[in-house]
């Protein structure tokens, strides 16, 4: 499937949203609200529960699965208080040595006057800094759209999974098309050039695993995802914290392609 088809699939209205995964993956959950500073962001969900026999913290960007829900969830575009809630829950998880599962599905962090007033940039910057040194394993799963900094704000992780048709991008292909070609109609070309697919992520070192999609048998699909998470968490938890952080640093440190000329 071409990048543009994947983009459409990742955004499809009938695609399962984060809440569906939370119901299927975790048991005995309790949703935890608020950033303790300003408010509670309905676009960013978080809570605690059981992944099989493992107590975990989950964080998820929820787009909403009906028109009413989508409006309430701000179409899955979190505000600064959302990123601060996520960080609060991650640091709580660190205290109690719980692994963290992040489900990413957003076109991007909310672009609005109030978000700027409350420091959207600062909130994401803080998450990147703190997640990089969080002393508990983190796995982020891009279940639909991974929209730029708004996605990365909960995706500085030890492992990143991409669902088969999920996409991850530095800018929306629409935005890219209108900047590069001054033509929003060039979306398909932009999507292709930006390299946004799950296979691209694995090739570029941004993601480790591609999770096959099977929404008709969603319970089976989630069972596989759950087993994958449990197996990776077991490996990560076996490492001394220092080593895990070293590997997380090395993981991001190695991403990027540049030339290195001889020193003059």
């Amino acid at each position: 499937m071409a990048a543009y088809q994947k983009l459409k699939a990742a955004r499809a209205n009938d695609r399962p949203t984060a809440s569906a995964y939370i119901r299927q993956l975790f048991e005995n959950t309790l949703e935890l609200h608020g950033d303790r500073k300003f408010g509670d962001d309905p676009a960013m969900l978080g809570g605690v529960g059981w992944l099989g026999d493992l107590p975990v913290t989950y964080i998820a960007i929820e787009k909403g699965d009906s028109t009413q829900e989508r409006i309430r969830r701000n179409f899955g575009c979190p505000k600064p208080e959302g990123y601060r809630k996520a960080l609060r829950l991650m640091q709580q998880a660190e205290k109690f040595h719980r692994p963290v599962v992040c489900l990413v599905d957003t076109s991007g962090a909310y672009c609005g006057e109030d978000a700027e007033q409350r420091g959207q940039g600062q909130a994401i910057a803080d998450n990147l800094l703190q997640m990089m040194r969080l002393q508990t394993p983190v796995i982020s799963v891009v279940i639909g759209e991974g929209g730029s900094g708004g996605a990365l704000g909960i995706a500085v992780a030890d492992r990143v999974y991409m669902l088969e048709n999920a996409v991850y991008s530095v800018i929306s292909p629409e935005g890219c098309a209108s900047i590069i070609w001054k033509d929003a109609g060039m979306v398909a070309q932009a999507a292709e050039h930006l390299r946004i697919t799950a296979a691209d992520m694995v090739e570029l070192g941004v993601a480790e695993r591609v999770i096959p999609e099977n929404f008709e048998q969603f319970d089976q699909m989630c069972e596989q995802l759950k087993n994958q998470l449990l197996s990776d968490f077991a490996a990560l938890s076996a490492l001394p914290a220092e080593q895990m952080l070293q590997q997380r640093y090395a993981r991001f440190r190695s991403i990027g392609q540049y030339q290195e000329t001889e020193n003059a």
Partner: peptide
């Protein structure tokens, strides 16, 4: 982030943040 380098540019945000933290 520089869009002409796609997702690699986005990941530099995390890379530099890690170095700042250290």
């Amino acid at each position: 982030a520089r869009m002409q380098e796609g997702i690699l540019s986005l990941m530099q945000m995390a890379k530099v943040s890690g170095a700042v933290g250290r």
